[in-house]
């Protein structure tokens, strides 16, 4: 099965880090991805720029409405995602527990949904 692991943390936590701590965290994330890829578990993934770079859009009556910022203000912010291949939820959770920012914030694990066959 495929699972998405959504990584959340308070951006403030990151802003409060020293340059060295931030560097170490990034290196740790690189190793985590390599590890998952070696085991054939990493399908895709990316870290994201901070939420103040986000633009949220809605289409209403054919008109594109845009707003500056994330879709909702939350305590922790979406910081990146992994698309993982796992046998079942147990394996997905076990893999996700090795994502380094899980120690700082939260990782939400969700199974992907296949769209129905094309008509």
């Amino acid at each position: 099965m495929k699972y998405v692991a959504l990584v959340y943390y308070r951006e403030q936590t990151i802003n409060d880090m020293t340059e060295q701590q931030w560097h170490d965290l990034n290196q740790e994330c690189i190793r985590c991805v390599e590890n998952l890829a070696d085991k054939g578990k990493f399908l895709a993934g990316q870290a994201l720029q901070p939420v103040d770079s986000a633009t949220t859009l809605r289409v209403r009556d054919g008109e594109v409405l845009m707003s500056d910022g994330p879709f909702a203000e939350t305590k922790e912010q979406l910081a990146g995602f992994y698309l993982l291949e796992a046998r079942d939820l147990n394996e997905a959770l076990q893999l996700a527990s090795h994502i380094p920012p899980a120690r700082l914030g939260s990782v939400e694990v969700r199974p992907v949904r296949d769209l129905p066959p094309k008509d």
């Binding site: 099965m1 699972y3 796992a86 046998r87 079942d88 939820l89 147990n90 997905a92 969700r110 199974p111």
Partner: peptide, 10 residues
């Protein structure tokens, strides 16, 4: 069913 919680003894 949907999240794939396996039917197994850990």
């Amino acid at each position: 069913r949907e999240a794939g919680i396996p039917y197994e003894v850990p």
